[in-house]
Design a protein around this nucleic acid. Structure first.
Lengths: 142, 142
DNA sequence: TTGGTAATGAGCTAAGCTAACTACCGTGAC
DNA sequence: GTCACGGTAGTTAGCTTAGCTCATTACCAA
């Protein structure tokens, strides 16, 4: 494999990510839930109880964006909002039982599109992607 | 590094890609050009002369979406539309000199956000991401 | 003529930002 | 203890970006 420069790699990676993100948008792992909603729900389940601000930071969106996502999830009974015990400005978000079930279902869905694509890869490729996911997440955090 | 299953890897990768894509949206490598516009312009420059349909396929969007992107690029003088020599239904898209310069600038911009992040990685990490980009692009094509 | 293809316009949803506003908190001065 | 001030949290409103489907028009090939 021929090594490329950082700027060339940036172009390759950027293109791949944009297109794969587009591709993922078409899949609806859980009925009506969109990719963004499911992503937020998953982060909330993993993070336990979070404030909207914390969840927005985790997901790399601004708070008003997260407010909208949360409203949708709450409407669907997947998220619960409770007042903060000591800070009147805050609320605490937790997943409901239905929300946890949804995350479980999406996480373990054998028929999930991306999981299927990954299953078609060999072990080395999967390993490469696992390493890459960690690095990409680090970049997204910066 | 502990190996995970394909479904777990799907969750990791999906999250990383969603968040990194969001992060990239914030960067405007070339003034007013959006990520989608720049991506299309880059693909067109790499592909030479393409029809709107071909460019849409390359970018993983539907033709009407690409029509809109092209209109924006043409307005900015970055893309040229010419009638197809033998097929009256088609047009041929090519980059103008200004478009080529824009792609060159974006590709080589040392200060580009993603390139800078990649420059902060070690060689092994860059190599991992280069391999991963190829795999991700393959998945996006499926 | 018929069936198919290409491009576009219209209408809609998803996704995200910023600005502005309201409510609340913590701290320092009095 | 009270109050003013600066800061924080969450939300609403308005806007742009991103993308799809459906319908339409024009053109092609058999």
């Amino acid at each position: 494999m021929k090594r490329v420069s950082a700027t060339e790699l940036a172009a390759l990676l950027q293109g791949a990510i944009i297109r794969l993100n587009r591709r993922m948008r078409h899949t609806r792992p859980l009925g009506e839930l969109t990719l963004s909603q499911l992503s937020a729900l998953t982060s909330l389940e993993l993070g336990g109880a979070l404030s909207p601000r914390e969840l927005a930071e985790t997901e790399r969106v601004r708070p008003p964006t997260m407010t909208r996502i949360i409203a949708k999830l709450e409407n669907r009974g997947l998220v619960r909002r409770t007042p903060h015990p000591t800070d009147g400005r805050q609320i605490i978000l937790t997943t409901t039982e239905a929300g946890r079930a949804a995350v479980r279902e999406a996480t373990q869905a054998k028929q999930a599109w991306l999981a299927e694509r990954l299953n078609e890869l060999n072990e080395e490729e999967q390993e490469t992607l696992q390493r890459a996911a960690t690095i990409l997440e680090k970049i997204a955090s910066s």
